[in-house]
Design a binder for these strands. Structure first.
Lengths: 201, 201
DNA sequence: CATGTTCTTGACACCATGTCAAATACTCTG
DNA sequence: CAGAGTATTTGACATGGTGTCAAGAACATG
């Protein structure tokens, strides 16, 4: 075997960075090849197609993202945990200059759309899987909070609601880019789910 | 002047139908030209570019959509109005076979992204404008409801929250396509904003 | 009927994805 | 250590996308 001349993981990192910044459709294989110092043909040989490359790069990101969420969701009061959860979410898609948005939401609306393509179905599943995992994390957090008397309600319904709000935040971020407003919406959502606390308590 | 050989509005209708079904990036000018029975060059002559064509087509849609919302938001109790609002929202992006999703959200995540393009900025504004108009409608509805004692809270914050949830629904629709689940989330959101009512009352 | 203005049409430049065959560089076997 | 085998690299190619342009065509107007 002839040995590969580039680092598989390095290319995935570089590729995802471009996908995140410019969108999947907005990033060309030539862009990635140039940035990675690899021939375009080598990318096709190693990954098969642009979508397959994106999927691999995205899975890496999803792993890291879920791990970070899980780590952050484990400390403090329930209110604190939800605050940190939204904090992480907003920080994530306000990162970069200019802000890159939420890769899951952007990818979902960009790729989960073409009719009857087939390949997009794999992408849709990857995005849906991340959302399910996040919902499960939030639900567990709420259930634990309920046992400690910090929350009374349906953890499943509330978790779904919270994740829905995060997706809405991802959309509003693209529309207005108004970070303080996003934080206000997040705080309001926490109040709705946990019950309002005094304005400055 | 040589007269135009096609109907300007007819082309906008045809174009938006394709954009909605297949996405902006997924629809080619050739597709539209074929469907409309027009030469591709004529489209460029009449509309300038694909993005400009999309924008004109989208503005038409936005006008109609806001009008329909406004009509539907004017009758019944506050709870009824919000229910109809979510109903219309969900119905809108579950229309078509397969369901086409929310054109605003899809467009926003697809076009409001490319860095430093400039043309996308016009699209972003169009999407943001629709969201602002919808938010204002919901806010007015809530304010009117507050005067009748059907709602106590901050209409602006609540309206923003509701619109955020609709954007989240648009994203979840792409991820799961589970319409009953979307309706549950909507109902839950109404309960959170207005205060819970009996499970079957 | 001539002229001018607009629309239409087809050719072109450029860039995208994806495929392929030939060249290449290493590993492994004999 | 030589030779065979195999995976990677490389550049050319096919196809299809956007956008431009010059030339032809159709109508309004003097």
């Amino acid at each position: 075997m002839r040995p590969r001349e580039f680092d598989h993981d390095e290319v995935l990192r570089i590729a995802f960075d471009q996908f995140w910044r410019k969108g999947v459709r907005g990033t060309s294989m030539s862009d990635i090849a140039r940035d990675a110092g690899v021939q375009r043909g080598s990318l096709y040989n190693a990954f098969g197609s642009k979508e397959a490359l994106f999927l691999q790069a995205y899975e890496r990101y999803a792993e890291d993202y879920v791990a970070a969420l899980q780590r952050a969701l484990g400390i403090g009061s329930l209110r604190k945990r939800l605050t940190v959860f939204f904090e992480l979410t907003i920080t994530n898609f306000r990162s970069g200059t200019p802000p890159r948005g939420c890769p899951t939401t952007r990818g979902l609306m960009e790729l989960g759309s073409a009719e009857g393509e087939g390949l997009d179905e794999a992408a849709r599943q990857a995005f849906a899987s991340l959302l399910s995992r996040v919902t499960a994390l939030v639900q567990d957090t709420l259930a634990a909070g309920a046992e400690r008397g910090e929350f009374s309600g349906n953890p499943a319904a509330a978790a779904l609601h919270i994740v829905t709000v995060t997706r809405g935040l991802a959309v509003l971020e693209r529309a207005f880019g108004d970070e303080p407003q996003l934080r206000k919406i997040a705080a309001h959502a926490i109040d709705l789910v946990l019950g309002k606390r005094g304005p400055k308590a």
